[in-house]
Write a protein that binds this DNA or RNA. Sequence first.
DNA 1: CTGAAAGCGCTAACAA
DNA 2: TTGTTAGCGCTTTCAG
Lengths: 337, 337
Amino acid sequence: MIKTTIIDVAKEAGVSKSTVSRVIRGDITSVREDTRKRVQEAIRKTGYKQNALASGLRTKRTHTVLLMIPDIVNPFWPEVARGVQDALRKEGYAVVLANSDWDGTIETDFLHRARTHCFDGIVINPARVTDQQLLQIGIPTVILGLHEDFPSFDSVGNDTLAGVRLAMQHLYDLGHRKIGLISGQYASRGRSARLKQYLSFLSDQNLIIEENDIVHCPYGQHHGYEAAKRLINQNHPPSAIFASNDILAIGALQALHAAGVRVPQDLSLIGMDDIYPASVTTPPLTTIAKFKYEEGREAARMLIDRIDRQTSKHPKTITFAPQLIIRGSTKPSTKPY
Amino acid sequence: MIKTTIIDVAKEAGVSKSTVSRVIRGDITSVREDTRKRVQEAIRKTGYKQNALASGLRTKRTHTVLLMIPDIVNPFWPEVARGVQDALRKEGYAVVLANSDWDGTIETDFLHRARTHCFDGIVINPARVTDQQLLQIGIPTVILGLHEDFPSFDSVGNDTLAGVRLAMQHLYDLGHRKIGLISGQYASRGRSARLKQYLSFLSDQNLIIEENDIVHCPYGQHHGYEAAKRLINQNHPPSAIFASNDILAIGALQALHAAGVRVPQDLSLIGMDDIYPASVTTPPLTTIAKFKYEEGREAARMLIDRIDRQTSKHPKTITFAPQLIIRGSTKPSTKPY
DNA sequence: CTGAAAGCGCTAACAA
DNA sequence: TTGTTAGCGCTTTCAG
C-alpha cells in the first residue's frame, strides 16, 4: 500500500509528471486526446490518488470550509448544518463542523485553525468574535443569522423581528389582550431585539405593558418552565404566552401541564423556530417557523460565490420571512376584552 | 496581509529556519532557552501562523478526522457527534462531518476524500461500505455501533439486543403478555437482530408468537404511525407495544392518540434510544436509553489510541449496556393474564 | 502539445 | 545547540 504519486503514473504512461498533472486537473485544452487516455489508463492501473495537501500547498485551495455553530445538539442547528453541508458537498467542499458552545476561546481556536489549515471559507454563527477579528482572518466568510454588528460580511438569516410580530399578531387576532413574554437571552448580549419588538407591538395596539408579563431567562427548557410558572402565578395571569423559542415554549408547556393549566383551552402558547420536538408535544406547538435548511444552503451558496470570484463586492444579506405554523397550542381567547 | 513563513521569522530572529521549526514544534530539548525566546518574539512580531498543509505534507499528519454518520438531522446523531468532537478537539483534532444518507456513493466519496486529504482517522457508522473496503482505505478507523460484519476494526456501541430484552422484560414485569413489535429496518440489511431478540424473549417466556403483532417498517415517524394503526386494528390488539426506536414510538403514540387509545391506561408503549423529543411527548415516553455521547467519546478515544501507537493490536470492542428509563408511557396491564 | 525546472512552506536527517 | 540540505507531492511558468 505504498502511496503512488504522479511520478509513478508518469513513468507508467511514459510521459512527464506535468502532463499527468494536466490531466488530473482536467486541463483539457492542453493535452492531446490519446495521451490523456494513456495517462488515465496509467492512473487506473497504478491506483493513483491525488494528494490534496501537496496540491493545496501550491494552489492555496483546500476545498474545505469551517462551519461554526453554538451547539449541534440544539435541534435548531442540525438542519442549518445540513443545508450548508449539502450545498457545499455538491460543489466539492467538505465541512469541518465546530461547536463553539458560546465560548470565545473555542471559537478563536477554530478560527485560527481555519487559517493554518488554509480553509477556503467560513460559515459562522458568531458567539464572541467581532466583525474586525473576522476580517483579520482573511478568509471568505458568511454570517449565519441577522446581526447588525457584522457589516463587513455577507449574511443570511430569518427576520426574527417579523417573526415576533407574526406571533403577537396571531395571538392578538385570536382575541388575546394580555400576552406574556418569555424572552430568552444570551449571556453575552444586551436586551434582545425580540423584547423591543414585543413592546412596540403592544404599544402599537394600545395595550398596557406590564412588567409582570415579561420574564427574561437564558435559553434552556427548564428556564422556560420556571418562567411560565412565574407568569401564571400572578393575580392577573396572561391569557397567552409567547416564548421566544421552542425550547423555552416546551418548558413552558410542561409547567402549564404541571400546574393544571390547559393549553390551549385556558391559555394559548406560541413558540418560535419550529424545531422537530415542538411538533410532537401535546398539544403540538403553534410556532413561528424559520427557514433553517434554506438558511444554511444559501449561506453556503453565498460563500461559494465569494470564493469563486475573489471580487470584494458589497456585502449582501439574504433575509427569510418566518412563517406562522398554526398547530394545537393556540386558540381564541375566552376572556372578554 | 502577505502570509509570513518560517523564513521571515528566521530572518527576524537571526536564526535558521530549522531553529524556527524546532520551536514551533515544541522541540524543547534542542533549542537554547534564549534563542527560543528570541524566536517566539519574532513569531509574535511577524504574526506568523503555521501552514498546516506544508507541515502535513512532510509529517503525513493533518490532525483531521472524518466522522461519517447517516444524518445529522436525526436526533440520535448530534449527541454522538458531540462526543467525538469534544474528545477529538481536546487532542487537537478537527472533525469533518459527513452525512451519508445511507447512500453508498456519498459514503465512498467521503472515504475517498479522507485519503486524498490525508485525514488521520475515520469514525464511521457504516451504511454500505464493507470491512474490506474500509481496510483498503488504509486509515485508522473505528466503527460506531455494534456490527458483527466489521471484524477488522475497533468498535463501540450500545448493546441493542440487551436493550430489546430490557424493554420486553419491563413490559412483561408489568403484566403484559401480548406485546406488539414495531420493528424498524434499513432498506439494505436483512431481518433485524432486534426481531430475533423479540422472538426469543417471547419463546423464553412461553408466550405465543403472533404474526399480527409484528409490523416491519422503515425507520420514520409516519411509518411508526401506520404500524401502530395496524397493530391496534385487529381483533385481539396487544396490551403493549415495543417500538424499536423512539422516532417510531413517537409516530405510534400519535396514532394511538388519534385512535382514542389512551397511553398508558389502555396500552403501554416503549421506545428505544432516548432521544430528546421522546421526553417531551404526552405522556413522556418510557424508553431504553443508549449512551450516545459516550459512544462518540469512546470512539474518538480509541481512534486517537490507534493513531498514536501505530501498532496494529487486535481490534477491541466497547459495549455500553442500555438503561431502562421509566417515564409515563408504560403501566401495569389491566388485562387478566 | 509536452517536458524541464523551480518552487509552495515546512520537516528531518546530517553536519558542523 | 544550530545550520545546511534534501525533499514531501504537486502546480506552474517557461522553453521547446
